[in-house]
Every structure is written in C-alpha cells, then in structure tokens.
Design a protein around this nucleic acid. Structure first.
Lengths: 333, 333
DNA sequence: TGGAAGACTGCAAACGTTTGCAACGATCCT
DNA sequence: AGGATCGTTGCAAACGTTTGCAGTCTTCCA
C-alpha cells in the first residue's frame, strides 16, 4: 500500500522511467520535473530502498561498529558519525561488539553486504583479522591504524607526551601510569608518548597492571597506586581517572594536593570533583571526518580509474586541558 | 562479484528455488539441505538483503531513534536494544535526533520505509505528531506513553515517590526539585510521584526552573537551590545531580551533611563523590523488552487475524538505590 | 528546404531473491 | 494392482527501481 514510483508516474501522467529521472536528476524537461515532483509530494512518495539498492548495487546506508556504546568516548564518536551521515542522507547501522573481537568480526561480515561502507571504531581484532574481513575500498578505521586500510586517528602519543610534560613542569618526578588492555593500538601510541616524554630523564614513569575501561577499573588501580610513592597518576581513560580520584578521596588522599590525577579523552572529566585535567580528543570531529573519508573512498572505488584518496590516513591533534585535578606536589610522599 | 544464490545452487547442483528453500527452511530433503548448506558455506554466501527485502516486503532491520546518544541513559537503552536485536539477527539503524522534535519526525519518516519496525526512545514530539507519523502496527515507544501506540516504560512516578519517602524518613521537610523541560511525559510522571508522596503532608517540595539534562544544567540549578532553605534536592537526572553536587561542594556546602542530593536513572551515579543516591531505571532491560514487544507486534501485524498483543503496554519497576549522597539533615539551614 | 543534431520520453530488461504452481516419483492404502 | 497422497523439485513470475536503447519531436544550420 505504500505509494510507488508507478503511482507517482501515473499521477503525473508520465512513464515510470521519466518519473525516476525527474526525481533522481536525469535529463527531463523543466515542466515534467516540476509536475513529477509535485505528484511525489502530493502522494508522500518515498523510494523503496531495497528496490533501488537491488538495481544500483548500492545499499544507501553506512555501518558503524563500536566496542561499547555505553562508553562515553564511543557514544561521542557515534554522535559525530550520525550527524555527518544524516547530512549525507545516509542512515547508519550501529553494532555494539561488547568489547569482543569475535562479535566485531561477525558484525563486519553481516553488515558488509547491507552497507556501502563500514566504520570500525577502535576495533579489538588483530591486524590480520581486520585485513581479512574488511574490504579496503569501503572501510575506514577510527582510532586504530592498520597498514592497508584507511583511518582517522587522534595523535594519542602527543597527548600523552603533553600530559607527562605538564606533570613534570609542575614538579612531579615519579608518575604512575595505569594502562588499558595490553596489545591495543591506542596503548602502543601512549607508550610512544611516554617514551618521548621520559627520554631526556628527569621524570620516572611506573607502569601498573592494566584495568578495564570503567570506574571500577580505576577504583581497583587506586589502592595499588596509593601504595606507591608516586605523586601523580596518569590514567588511559577518564572513567578510570574518575575511579582513581574517587577512591583516593575516599581514603583521605587529597587531590590535587597529595596526588595529581590526569585523565584521557575528555569525556566525563567535568563530572569529577575536582574536575579532571585530561587529554582532549576530538571524538565528534573524528566521527565526522571518518564519514567524509569513507564517502570519498567509496566514490573513488566506483570510478574505474581508482586513484585511492591520498589522504587516507587522517590524524587529528589532541591537546591537554588543564583543570583542577593537577597541581604542584606538596611534599614527597 | 559477491556470490549469489545462483552460484550456490550451481555448486550444489540444484535450482535456485531449491537452494533458497534449503537455506530458509522450506521443504527439501535432508540430503539436499546438507549439500546446499555445504556449498553456501564453501562459497561464503551471504544473501542480498535488498533482493530479499524487495520480494518479501520485509526490510530485515529495525530502527531506533534517540534524542541524544551522548546521554548515558539513552546509550544504555541503545545497548540493550542492540544486544537483543543481534540475538534476533536483525541489524538496527540508529538515529540521533539532537533533542529536536523536527529531526525526530524526519528520522521516523525516512526510517519507516527501510525497517520492519521502529523504536522511539523518549520522543520529544507531541502525541498528535507521533500518532500521525508512526505506524501503530510497527512502532514501540520507550519511556513514553501515547494512547494508541505500544510502549515500554519504567514506573517513574513510583521511583520519585520512593525518593521523596526516603528523604522524608531521613527527616527532611523541605525538598528542592529540579525538573527537566516542561511538557515531557517523564516530567508528568515524576509530578505524579511528587503529588503522591506529598499528599499526606509532612514534607514540602519546592519546584525550581527547568534545566537541560547536563552537568552544566545542574551547576546552573545549584546556586538557586543553595539560596533556598531546602535541606535536600531531587534532580530529574543523574547528570544534573552530579552538577548540583559538584557545585555545592565547590561552594563549601558538604554533601550529604549540609545537603542531601538524589539523582535519577542510575547512569553516572557511581562517578560522583560521594556516590549518588538515585532512582534506578532498568534501561538495558527496557531496550531489550522493547525489541521483544516490537517483534511480537510486527509478527501479529503480518497475520490477517490481527489480535494485537494484549500486553502492548509494558511497565518496568524502578527502585531507589541508596548510596552516600543522602543523610539526615544536621541542622535547619 | 533538407538534413543533422539535440532534447525529451517510453519500452523493456535487469538486479537477486522468494514463492505459487505444476510435475514428477515414490509410498501408502484398499 | 490401481489410485490417491505426499514429499521433493524446477519453472517462472513477481517485488520497485534504474538505465541502455531507440523512437519522436523540435530546433538549428547550411
């Protein structure tokens, strides 16, 4: 019962072919175009995506796979993606992989056929696995870099470097670092930043065991960190930083007087008290940029002369936002 | 170049019709089914959704419209929806309406044709608008009730009642209430709860101007609340509660000694320090239940004898989670 | 004035899948 | 042993759209 192109054509007194051309930008007379448009409007015509997709071979939709929608970092990215996709009039399938590489791969497999392109945000799967399952001509990685695939990342290494420099400038000499699950691309980047910042000495970074990207993870790490002599702690994630801060406060350790805390991502940093000094990552912008890149990619893939976009590896800058959770160390602990 | 059903059929030595039946559960011999399945597996066959959708009239996908993916409440709901939809092997289109009724309606319009059913989470649009734009046989409302449409809601009124009772039991007599944008269904429900809890006197609720569902909104409300004599404040949202708590602390007002704070939704309650007493709403479960209901709804709509599901209005219970942000008032302020 | 070129339109095929119908063989019952 | 029934299969149509091709009509130039 939904109105079809034929209904519109009949209403406008033309053939379906002409109606199609009038609506999709083919060569028709101005008068015809106007009357077809009017008929379509009058009847509330909406093209059948399935039929269009069948003949054109395009799905008219994008796909986004994230590890966890509940993580504010990914929620922000998803928002950026959704906004940019809406502007391009493309609906987007969103899959939540529950932090599992297996579900991630399965999502890619099933979404690949029903979309024109896929956005994989911080995928947990291994490089080889991704290269195997993803179509390089229709996939953009977000916050992950794999040779052979297009990607949009933030300069995490530099962000971490800025954070350490900030703490060093304040006078901290022993800094605790709480990392995430080992083997992740983001983790490696942060390691690069740590190495760069500690290269010329003057500051020592002690690495703690990895924890989950949650407030609970931060709480768990807090007691270990407090047992150490560090005067500052750097968390790989704002949620972890919030957990650290909360637990420290609960145990009577004052932040930032007794302990400086630095987060990462600038997601929930203003929810903490004191508000968190953190490394801001432009999640929304990254999401939007990824959609842009993906659109260029699939457009290039459709033209036979296939010059893949030069700038298939986008890097966005990060910057430290200094708030209230960092200060000069009062006394050596 | 992707493998089609014909490829599978040829590989298995049967017709396309038989291959289709073998894979989708038609009547074929056990041997045929096995060999077709084997062929499909060998070739990595994935059915073309567009072609299937065109002939069956089903899209094989669901749609979810939320006001803001960034709001942890909706992110949780989306996670519940995604998990349940994955179990049903249905991908889900997610649209972010940016808290605007107009975008919401537009999302419904464009998604309606490309999905089998739509989930509208806390829609901002007016009742009449929703009834106009939504197909009652394929739409489920989440955290909103409109006569004529199926819905899954939480008992917000009772949650608010529990919160007020809790504060009264602690000895509070003057409670500040910070509401959200006026005219919302959830707001009305909370008003019902407030009325119920204050009916037999003994406690007074003072209503403050509405604020945005953000930490900033809470900060904004905080100074107004502190100027009042209330010993406790009830926020319509955890984010707002966090803002209230942070600002109060910053101004030297101790929580819970000088001011008790109660949030709502149990989203970011454990991020605050002290952790928030809040009304827990089962978002994930609501999302999953909404998918279930939607699936039953569309199944019923497909059978001509159309007995719409009896339980088209699901209500989930809420309960107060008492944490560290509420206590007996120390002295009248 | 004749022809070529161009603008506009319709016919029909095609995309990959599902499904009604009919055909076939085997099995069962009487 | 004959007919009916059932299980299994293939043929062909159908879903709604886009698009190559050819046709018609107009316009322009020589």
């Amino acid at each position: 019962m939904p109105t079809t192109l034929h209904d519109v054509a009949r209403e406008a007194g033309v053939s379906a072919a002409t109606a199609s051309r009038a609506l999709t930008g083919g060569t028709v007379s101005a008068g015809t175009r106007a009357s077809v448009r009017a008929a379509a409007e009058r009847l509330g015509y909406r093209p059948n995506r399935a039929a269009r997709g069948l003949i054109t071979g395009r799905a008219g939709a994008l796909g986004l796979v994230v590890p966890d929608l509940t993580n504010p970092f990914f929620a922000d990215v998803a928002k950026g993606v959704a906004a940019r996709a809406r502007a391009a009039d493309l609906p987007v399938f969103v899959a939540d992989a529950d932090e599992e590489a297996g579900l991630e791969v399965e999502a890619v497999r099933s979404l690949a056929r029903s979309t024109d392109g896929l956005l994989l945000c911080s995928p947990r799967a291994a490089d080889a696995q991704l290269l195997d399952v993803a179509d390089a001509r229709a996939t953009v990685l977000l916050h992950r870099r794999v040779p052979g695939l297009a990607s949009v990342v933030a300069d995490l290494a530099d962000g971490t470097r800025q954070a350490v420099e900030h703490l060093r400038a304040l006078g901290h000499r022993r800094i605790a670092y709480v990392p995430g699950s080992p083997g992740s691309w983001a983790g490696e980047q942060r390691d690069v930043g740590l190495a760069a910042a500690t290269a010329d000495g003057g500051v020592e970074v002690v690495r703690f065991p990895p924890v989950a990207p949650t407030v609970a993870g931060g709480v768990q790490a807090a007691d270990l960190v407090l047992a150490d002599g560090a005067t500052a702690v750097l968390a790989y994630n704002d949620l972890v930083a919030v957990g650290l801060l909360g637990r420290a406060t609960a145990r009577g350790v004052r932040v930032p007087e007794d302990l400086s805390v630095v987060g990462h991502d600038d997601t929930v940093a203003t929810m903490a008290h004191p508000s968190l000094t953190t490394v801001a990552v432009p999640q929304r912008r990254a999401g939007a940029a990824a959609v842009d890149l993906l659109l260029r990619l699939v457009a290039a893939a459709r033209t036979p002369g296939a010059p893949l976009p030069e700038d298939a590896e986008v890097t966005l800058t990060t910057h430290l936002v200094v708030r209230a959770s960092t200060a000069e160390p009062t006394r050596p602990r």
